[in-house]
């Protein structure tokens, strides 16, 4: 604890923050690294992909909304286990999760993405972009796949994914925070911990800068998701109102 890191945060404290976030991440991931490795080359057959493509648009939208909602519930659990998060006021906890949960889901998605054949884990097996054709939003799907590929290219360790997820979630960029200083203090510590780990792991000095440069893309993807949802809802209001998970509607509608 004697050695001081940036901003006079002790290295011991940075280490404690990092360990807490890594543990929270590992405890709240839907799949362990081992499970993902075992599944990595189990891909949907041609017939299975055709089956997804043949689904009515609203059915596939509903299926994706359910999967996203499921993933978000794990992200809420991740947030709750981060030291300091539950000490923020309830308004800010809700705001940070409302605006950041989908971004964290997208960051976590890179764990379940195989960049060698551009496939993602969906409904138990890996499949390519064509699996989501029936959603009718090729631009969004293609942008999400591009993002996952670009994040995979950085070859992040599980520890780095954990800290980056926390940094994305605990962000002072969100509007209407009631205690932005408190959020900022927590965010700074997370960034220092991330910086410390990345300097240790990567030869590339710009690795952290490259990672941070992906954040605007994350935000753009979430905006695109909201726009596509609105467009879909205009055509299928009943599907959204009656069949979509209540948490999904609460967060995005």
């Amino acid at each position: 604890d004697i050695q001081l890191g940036p901003n006079n945060v002790s290295m011991g404290e940075l280490d404690r923050i990092a360990q807490n976030i890594i543990k929270s991440h590992l405890e709240t991931c839907q799949y362990t690294t081992e499970e993902l490795q075992q599944l990595a080359w189990q891909t949907h057959s041609y017939e299975e992909v055709k089956m997804f493509q043949g689904k009515p648009r609203d059915v596939l939208w509903q299926q994706c909304a359910i999967q996203i909602t499921h993933a978000i519930q794990y992200v809420v659990e991740f947030a709750k286990r981060i030291s300091g998060f539950m000490e923020l006021c309830q308004n800010d906890q809700i705001l940070l999760l409302k605006s950041g949960c989908l971004e964290v889901v997208l960051v976590r998605m890179c764990r379940a993405f195989n960049p060698l054949n551009n496939t993602v884990l969906f409904e138990g097996k890996y499949g390519g972009m064509q699996m989501f054709k029936a959603l009718g939003c090729d631009d969004l799907v293609s942008a999400v796949f591009d993002f996952a590929k670009s994040l995979c290219a950085l070859q992040l360790t599980e520890e780095e994914i954990a800290l980056f997820s926390a940094a994305v979630l605990i962000s002072t960029d969100r509007p209407w925070l009631m205690e932005p200083r408190k959020v900022q203090k927590l965010q700074e510590k997370i960034y220092f911990a991330l910086q410390h780990i990345m300097q240790k792991n990567h030869m590339d000095e710009d690795a952290l800068a490259k990672l941070i440069s992906r954040i605007p893309t994350l935000s753009a993807l979430c905006t695109l998701h909201t726009e596509e949802l609105q467009a879909f809802q205009q055509l299928h209001p009943e599907t959204v109102n009656v069949l979509f998970p209540p948490l999904y509607k609460e967060l995005f509608n």
Binding site: V76, E77, K80, Q90, N91, Q93, I94, K98, E250, L251
Partner: peptide, 17 residues
């Protein structure tokens, strides 16, 4: 905000499983 996000608020209130 709590009123508009009852499910999220409830998830935050639930004890960590």
């Amino acid at each position: 905000l709590k009123e508009k996000h009852k499910i999220l608020h409830q998830l935050l209130q639930n004890s960590t499983s």
